[in-house]
Design a protein around this nucleic acid. Structure first.
Lengths: 100, 100
DNA sequence: CAAACATATCTATAATTATCGATATGAAAA
DNA sequence: TTTTCATATCGATAATTATAGATATGTTTG
C-alpha cells in the first residue's frame, strides 16, 4: 500500500458514520435483519438497511459506500436490484501493515 | 478504543502530510538529521525538522502535531525550547484492534 | 532583563467535504 | 412495456478543514 491509497482510506475513516459502518459490517448478523431475498450475509448488507440504520439520506449513504469501495475498504456485489457491501479484509490488513 | 476516538484518529490520517509524518516517525533516523542538542531519537523529532521536511508553514505543522497528540497518535516531550514528537505505538495498536 | 529562538495559538480566507433533494439509471414485476 | 423499487449521480448550499501570517508564550543566552 502506498501513501496516497492509505490517505484515501484515512479519509473514509474520518467520519463517525463511515467508521460506524465499518464496525457494523464486522458482524452484520448482529446489526442487520436478514435480507428478505438473500438469506445469508456472504456479500454483506444492502444499501437500504445501512441507510435506515444511520438515518442519513439515501444519496449520502450511497456516496459514502461508493467512496469506501473506491479506496478498497469495501467490496460491493449486485444481486438483482440490490447492492450488497461487505468489508474488504485484505485491504484493511494492508492498511494496518502500512500504519505499523 | 471507542468510536469517537477512532474517528478522531481517522481525521488525523485523512491528510497526506499527516500520514507521511506518521510514516517518517516509524524510523526517524532514516528521515531526519540527529538533533544538534539531543543526540538520540528517544523522544522523536523536533517540530522545526518536521516542518522543514514538509515545506508547510510552522503554524500549520504545529497545529497538525498538536491534533495528532490530542487524539493519542503522537506523544510530545519538551526539552528546553524544543518539542519532540514520536509515535504512540500503544494507541496505534488500539486503533488497529478497533478496525480489526 | 533584553534579545533571540522554538513552538503555540489566534484570526482570516481558501479549499474541501457533508448533506440533501432532484433526477437518472438499472433491474424486477405487474 | 409501463410501473415500481433500489441504487447511483448531479447540483446546490452548509459545514468543516487547510493553511498562512501575525502575534503570544515559554525558554535559553548574552
Amino acid at each position: 500500500m502506498n501513501l496516497r491509497t492509505a490517505t484515501e482510506i484515512g479519509k473514509c475513516l474520518s467520519n463517525q458514520t463511515r467508521m460506524q459502518i465499518m464496525e457494523w459490517l464486522k458482524a452484520p448478523e448482529k446489526h442487520f435483519p436478514p435480507h428478505e431475498t438473500l438469506k445469508h450475509f456472504n456479500d454483506g448488507v444492502c444499501v437500504t438497511y445501512i441507510q435506515e440504520k444511520t438515518g442519513l439520506s439515501q444519496s449520502t449513504i450511497s456516496t459514502y459506500l461508493s467512496n469506501m469501495e473506491k479506496c478498497g475498504l469495501l467490496i460491493s456485489t449486485r444481486h438483482g436490484k440490490w447492492s450488497y457491501f461487505k468489508r474488504n479484509e485484505k485491504v484493511i490488513r494492508q492498511f494496518i501493515n502500512f500504519l505499523n
